[in-house]
Simulated scan of single mutants.
Amino acid sequence: MKQVMSNKLIIAMYTLPALILILALVYVPIVMTGYYGLMEWDGIGAKTFIGLENYIGLMQDAKFWDSAYHSFLLAAFSTLSLVGYLVISLVLANKLKGSELLRKIYLIPMLLSSVAIAQLWLKIYDPNNGMLNSLLEIFGVENTPTWLADPKLVLISIFIAIIWQYAGFYIIIYSAALKGIPESLVEAARIDGANPIQIAYKVKLPLIAGVIKVTIVLAIVGSLKYFDLIYVMTGGGPNGASEVLASYMYKEAFASYNFGYGSAVGFALLVICLIITWLVRKLTASNEEIQY
């Protein structure tokens, strides 16, 4: 077996199908998206080469920048929510009574599709019969908010739904990382007189720093290209108050039949994701590797 796996031809035969699939499903569409961004095209008829007009138009498009701003707000909010997920994971890692049940409850949103979650939160936010406004009325609030119709409230309302949707995903990642920490290290810190907060901050967090960096990248990039739940709940409204880059790209390409401009938006989104990922990796880079 060792002799077979040292044969470069056999290695190439094993890896070639995967490389072809990656090339066909990832890199070719990326190149084609950038290429379509150079065209004036409705997605059906003949293409007209217009050079960088679409990309120059992006720089002057107020709707594009508003959508980008909302996407960055979502990315910032999602990154901050990681602190909450991490705290919950640290608490559950202490083997408290009922922690296993809570861990399973947090996973429930992962079993639902984004469309189902959107429909659920639409019912919660319903201004007339929704659970949230009904609770506010019980506590004496007369003029209950129209959560998804108010430009000042729509983003925070959507962000709360997204936090609920991804809670289980990040908690299970952090919980798995915390379980990998040797109990002997925690016990040694406890014998030295460290309290639970000190153990969490000075022992556990440094040991899972690599996992935390990965989740930061996942949260930011995932937020920048987030689409489905927002589109189902608000469609980018009211009046563009919840429009994000992915929904703006969809509307331009498939609703307005401006496929060339929509491709330019999509390619710009890709570039933004790459730059943000590079910046996060640079800012969180460390030459120290903790061994245990």
Rank of each mutant, 00 (worst) to 15 (best):
156 I>P: 07
179 K>Q: 10
121 W>V: 04
221 V>N: 03
143 N>Q: 13
167 A>F: 15
65 W>C: 08
35 Y>Q: 05
151 P>G: 02
290 I>Q: 03
63 K>H: 11
289 E>Y: 11
14 Y>D: 01
130 G>V: 06
210 G>Q: 14
286 S>N: 15
91 V>P: 12
74 L>F: 12
185 L>A: 03
156 I>N: 11
141 V>R: 10
35 Y>E: 03
256 S>I: 02
212 I>F: 14
223 S>M: 09
53 E>K: 14
63 K>P: 04
273 C>L: 11
280 V>R: 09
77 F>L: 08
199 I>C: 07
75 A>Y: 13
136 L>G: 02
211 V>K: 01
31 V>D: 01
143 N>K: 12
51 G>P: 11
235 G>P: 04
92 L>M: 11
285 A>Q: 04
83 V>N: 06
266 G>S: 14
125 Y>A: 00
80 L>S: 08
172 I>F: 08
27 Y>A: 02
222 G>W: 15
60 Q>P: 02
270 L>N: 02
165 Q>T: 14
206 P>L: 08
23 L>D: 08
102 L>F: 15
227 F>K: 00
208 I>L: 09
218 L>A: 07
69 Y>E: 05
58 L>A: 06
178 L>H: 12
58 L>I: 13
137 E>L: 01
55 Y>W: 00
116 A>Q: 13
205 L>G: 09
96 L>H: 06
207 L>E: 09
106 Y>N: 12
278 W>C: 03
143 N>R: 10
277 T>F: 09
8 K>D: 10
155 L>N: 03
161 A>Y: 15
98 G>S: 05
167 A>G: 02
75 A>K: 08
160 I>T: 13
37 G>F: 02
50 I>D: 05
255 A>I: 05
101 L>Q: 05
144 T>K: 12
95 K>W: 13
195 N>I: 06
283 L>R: 01
281 R>S: 01
148 L>Q: 07
56 I>A: 12
190 R>N: 05
271 V>S: 07
53 E>D: 10
270 L>D: 06
58 L>G: 04
10 I>N: 07
155 L>W: 03
228 D>V: 02
278 W>T: 12
108 I>L: 11
127 P>Y: 06
79 T>G: 07
190 R>V: 04
119 Q>F: 15
68 A>E: 04
95 K>A: 14
105 I>H: 05
23 L>S: 14
100 E>N: 09
263 S>D: 00
62 A>T: 15
134 S>P: 01
103 R>P: 03
25 L>C: 14
225 K>M: 00
246 A>D: 03
126 D>Y: 06
132 L>Q: 04
170 Y>N: 05
209 A>G: 01
105 I>G: 05
255 A>N: 08
85 Y>S: 09
145 P>A: 04
29 P>H: 14
